[in-house]
């Protein structure tokens, strides 16, 4: 399998008057052609910032970035703003959480899709329009011809998100980044959109980065997952592998804190104590150690690099065996075994 996108040793620091905040710490991963890679984590873990870094959307002044983001042979970090604009929307498409704020309320959706095609592909107005119609059909919008004339407010949330996907895919990008694409949607609509993303991935053989906080979304949609915590990738691997052998204290904590799996009515949920740490005062060891039930004194010492747990399955956790032993009986883990 060839890698469409590969990120290596990405470090990102935000500087403000109160000092430097290390938002991304040695992020390395690759995205194969035709796979859905899911970035999982809580707010502030760096999953959205990773997407912004790939898209070149970080504020230029305050963000210090190092490492490389390769799309094919090009390192996106070497590109200037004009070249980046040609990558965004053309070679990498992006879908955001809230489709209403990402669409222009005063233009019809047909015009907005056509504009993307015209800008990046230099297509004439007529070709762009027919491409827009084709895209609306592709994302299964019923009665697409008439919907070209619709304004965003005339569409439901699910339809708007379909339009966003159509826009993101209009130029046949190699990579689609979907940042919490279904968080603002209702459950029944969420299922439809996830299904659509999965189908389009196969049809167009594109690569997808799916950012979410919902392990259910990961399990039902993604091929591979990366669990992020406080700017680091703490565990990554194929979805079946990670769920069947959780190997980081944080992954285990996330699984155990889900209500409804192995818990009975109003039983005590295993919570992750405390809250997300501040990124400007990090300890040299495991950033999760202060909240981790499995932590020992060794966890506060500088950590070795992520080690292989199994095929393509890596974890930063030095206590991975203890973690797995403790959680191996959990309902979700057993379901995947």
């Amino acid at each position: 399998m060839t890698d469409t996108l590969s990120v290596e040793h990405l470090n990102l620091t935000f500087e403000n008057e109160n000092g430097a905040v290390l938002a991304l710490d040695e992020i390395s991963f690759s995205l194969a052609r035709g796979e859905i890679l899911s970035l999982v984590g809580e707010s502030g873990c760096g999953k959205s910032v990773t997407a912004m870094a790939i898209m070149g959307l970080l504020p230029p002044g305050s963000a210090k970035i190092s490492g490389s983001i390769r799309l094919g042979p090009t390192n996106l970090l070497d590109l200037n703003e004009a070249e980046l604009r040609n990558v965004r929307g053309n070679r990498i498409g992006m879908v955001f959480q809230d489709p209403m704020t990402s669409l222009d309320p005063v233009h019809t959706v047909g015009m907005q899709i056509a504009e993307v095609v015209q800008r990046h592909r230099g297509a004439d107005a007529k070709a762009a329009r027919s491409r827009a119609l084709e895209m609306l059909d592709l994302v299964r919008i019923p009665d697409a011809r008439n919907r070209l004339q619709a304004y965003p407010h005339e569409l439901s949330g699910g339809m708007r998100q379909r339009v966003m996907i159509a826009m993101a895919l209009a130029c046949n990008p190699e990579v689609l980044i979907a940042d919490e694409p279904t968080t603002a949607l209702d459950v029944t609509v969420q299922a439809q959109i996830l299904e659509l993303i999965g189908e389009l991935k196969s049809e167009l053989s594109m690569s997808v980065i799916l950012i979410t906080h919902d392990l259910g979304v990961v399990a039902s949609t993604a091929d591979r997952m990366m669990v992020m915590y406080a700017g680091r990738i703490v565990e990554e691997g194929p979805v079946e592998r990670v769920f069947s052998r959780p190997s980081h204290g944080y992954t285990a904590g996330l699984l155990q804190s889900l209500p409804g799996y192995g818990s009975t009515l109003r039983s005590h949920l295993t919570e992750i104590a405390g809250s997300v740490p501040r990124l400007d005062h990090r300890n040299p060891g495991c950033t999760f150690a202060p909240r981790c039930r499995f932590a020992t004194g060794h966890c506060n010492a500088p950590l070795p690099d992520a080690h292989e747990i199994g095929a393509n399955h890596r974890s930063l956790c030095i206590r991975d065996t203890a973690v797995f032993e403790a959680i191996s009986n959990h309902e979700i883990v057993r379901a995947w075994a």
């Binding site: 459950v187 029944t188 969420q190 299922a191 996830l194 919902d214 392990l215 259910g216 979304v217 990961v218 399990a219 039902s220 949609t221 079946e240 769920f243 699984l255 889900l258 799996y261 979700i332 379901a335 995947w336």
Partner: peptide, 11 residues
Amino acid sequence: AAVPRPVPEAR
């Protein structure tokens, strides 16, 4: 049925 669940059947 629409709730995505972190179990293999969801796939």
